[in-house]
Amino acid sequence: DHIPWITAVLPTVIICVMVFCLILWKW
Rank of each mutant, 00 (worst) to 15 (best):
1 D>L: 05
1 D>N: 01
1 D>Y: 06
1 D>G: 07
1 D>E: 05
1 D>R: 07
2 H>L: 12
2 H>K: 13
2 H>R: 04
2 H>Y: 10
3 I>A: 09
3 I>P: 11
3 I>S: 02
4 P>R: 06
4 P>I: 00
4 P>C: 09
4 P>A: 10
4 P>S: 07
4 P>D: 15
5 W>P: 03
5 W>I: 09
5 W>E: 06
5 W>G: 06
5 W>D: 13
5 W>Q: 14
6 I>E: 15
6 I>S: 12
6 I>T: 09
6 I>K: 07
6 I>C: 07
7 T>Q: 06
7 T>L: 07
7 T>E: 14
8 A>S: 02
8 A>Y: 10
8 A>R: 13
8 A>D: 03
9 V>L: 05
9 V>G: 04
9 V>Q: 13
9 V>N: 08
10 L>E: 15
10 L>H: 00
10 L>D: 15
10 L>G: 05
10 L>Q: 13
10 L>K: 13
11 P>D: 00
11 P>S: 00
11 P>T: 00
11 P>W: 10
11 P>Y: 00
11 P>I: 00
12 T>I: 00
12 T>Q: 12
13 V>R: 03
13 V>P: 04
13 V>N: 07
13 V>Q: 15
14 I>G: 00
14 I>P: 01
14 I>L: 01
14 I>Y: 09
15 I>K: 04
15 I>F: 02
15 I>P: 06
15 I>R: 01
15 I>C: 01
15 I>L: 03
16 C>I: 00
16 C>T: 09
16 C>D: 14
16 C>W: 02
17 V>Y: 05
17 V>I: 06
17 V>F: 11
18 M>D: 01
18 M>Q: 14
18 M>I: 00
18 M>L: 05
18 M>K: 03
19 V>C: 15
19 V>T: 12
19 V>S: 11
19 V>W: 11
19 V>L: 11
19 V>G: 07
20 F>V: 10
20 F>L: 05
20 F>Q: 02
20 F>C: 02
21 C>I: 11
21 C>F: 05
21 C>P: 12
21 C>Q: 14
21 C>K: 12
21 C>E: 12
22 L>R: 12
22 L>V: 04
22 L>A: 04
22 L>Y: 13
22 L>T: 11
23 I>L: 03
23 I>G: 04
23 I>V: 07
23 I>F: 03
23 I>S: 04
23 I>R: 08
23 I>T: 08
23 I>K: 15
24 L>S: 06
24 L>A: 07
24 L>D: 14
24 L>M: 00
24 L>T: 11
25 W>Y: 06
25 W>R: 08
25 W>M: 05
26 K>Y: 01
26 K>P: 09
27 W>L: 08
27 W>F: 13
